[in-house]
Write a protein that binds this DNA or RNA. Structure first.
Lengths: 179, 179
DNA sequence: AACGGAAGTGAGAGACCTCTTACATCGACA
DNA sequence: TGTCGATGTAAGAGGTCTCTCACTTCCGTT
């Protein structure tokens, strides 16, 4: 096998998203990630003590990137904060396979990972600012966005080249209706 | 081990819901269901040729029961069809662990199971009647309801005795806002 | 009562997974 | 150049899962 890899740690996180996007959390395994990278199945354990620590790093990355995606979408269309955020959520989750079910997966609460805690906190803070500290509105928006993302993942919509745009638009519309 | 079981086939389906409600599809296994029933891990294969056929029967049962739950809720409050349906969905999924991610799970499309096909078709028909054949409204309602159910499953709401009622009410409210 | 099919059982093959261990190799630096 | 820590590898222990097989037990029918 080819020996080293500029930065296997980062590659493992990146590739975890691919595995998640294709098979969902159900099919995720450390071994599958290693296989796809062409490294031995022991290699990941040089960088993460166990599976949950890798998933925790994925969660932290997802929280960070999702927050950035939402912030960018809101900045691009400040008049439609909630709609933009919901649309960004759908796009992000469809593309990466990592939504709240990955970011807030129950098994991660036992993992001591300050980066993850910080990134998820920042994500929640950004969303709370969007709803002006209205927790219920935040929950409702998240429910709408995650619901649409789940429908896409479940194959409810015919898969076309611009399906994601379509569905993101519908999620935005539904989020606006919440006001 | 105790020998027979009045109706192991039905018991397997029933117990599958318990396993799904507790661990989600990720943790579901035929072996776990058998263990919980106190039968050998080979016993289920007398009634279902493989894991996917068992899951297909669970899907059929869930589609049937969910349809009944929605129909009952709508009948009890005909003025608020969409809200009642969304609330009923949340209650059903929180209680059984079997929402659209189980009923319409991708791996089931390969299983030839006419009962399942009929039950899922009936479920969709009932929901379509509710939205007066408006497919987009059906999708939006499903997204809202499933989103809230997912948030509960992810532990977003503090777990109290009447959390489900609370959340079902919020889902109903959000569904009404879609109109 | 005997029998035959339905419905269990225990054992286990074969797959895959997590994680460990002992060893090999690489790159940086004295 | 030689050494050493970081980062790979191969092998494998131990676990769980799906599904099969040969065998047994139960029960309805004749």
């Amino acid at each position: 096998m080819g020996y080293h890899h500029g930065d296997l740690r980062a590659a493992l996180i990146r590739t975890s998203f691919d595995v998640l996007a294709e098979g969902g959390p159900e099919r995720f395994s450390v071994a599958a990630v290693a296989r796809r990278l062409g490294v031995s199945s022991a290699a990941p354990y040089r960088h993460f003590p166990d599976r949950d620590h890798l998933l925790s790093a994925v969660s932290a990355t997802a929280a960070h990137d999702l927050r950035a995606a939402i912030a960018a979408a809101v900045a691009a269309d400040p008049a439609d904060g909630l709609g933009a955020a919901a649309g960004a959520y759908v796009r992000y989750v469809v593309r990466t396979g990592a939504g709240i079910h990955v970011i807030f997966a129950a098994e991660l609460y036992a993992v001591p990972d300050d980066d993850r805690r910080e990134q998820t906190r920042a994500l929640m803070t950004t969303m709370l600012e969007l709803t002006r500290a209205d927790v219920r509105l935040l929950e409702a928006t998240l429910a709408v966005a995650h619901g649409y993302a789940s429908l896409v993942a479940q194959g409810f919509f015919s898969q076309g080249p611009d399906t994601v745009d379509e569905v993101a638009g519908r999620a935005a519309e539904a989020a606006r209706a919440l006001l």
